[in-house]
């Protein structure tokens, strides 16, 4: 029985760690789906693990599909930031794609609103 218990622990242990195997979006600023009163000057995305700057990107577009971010994405650890142009009231879509340091790719999108 000791062997079996050890075996169970071993394998739960070895692969329990893989729950964090991909970099998922932990939270964003402006928040996902939020309506903000003042137009934000930058977008900040925080992921569940460190990401590779060379292969991670984010784009913010307005309801007409025009890109409103300033393009220069900064990545530090699990944090990704991009400066935004002057945003008028309306809906904005954030589309991101990141590669985690353990090489997995995740992507996603969400919307935030700037109140009139």
């Amino acid at each position: 029985m000791n062997w079996l218990a050890a075996a169970v622990l071993v394998f739960l242990g070895a692969f329990g760690g893989q729950a964090q195997a991909h970099a998922f979006l932990d939270h964003a600023e402006p928040r996902v789906g939020a309506t903000v009163q003042a137009a934000p000057a930058k977008l900040t995305l925080t992921f569940t693990q460190d990401i590779e700057p060379a292969f991670s990107s984010v784009k913010v577009t307005d309801s007409q599909g025009r890109e409103v971010d300033k393009g220069k994405v900064q990545v530090q650890g699990a944090l990704m930031q991009v400066a935004l142009g002057a945003l008028g009231p309306g809906d904005y879509t954030v589309t991101w794609r990141v590669v985690s340091v353990d090489t997995h790719v995740t992507e996603g999108d969400f919307v935030f609103h700037v109140a009139p």
Partner: peptide
């Protein structure tokens, strides 16, 4: 297993998925 992540880990933070 190296390619997988448990589905339960998916967050509420917008739509997101793994492409690998």
């Amino acid at each position: 297993l190296g390619n997988m992540a448990p589905a339960s880990h998916l967050h509420e933070e917008g739509m997101q998925h793994m492409s690998h």
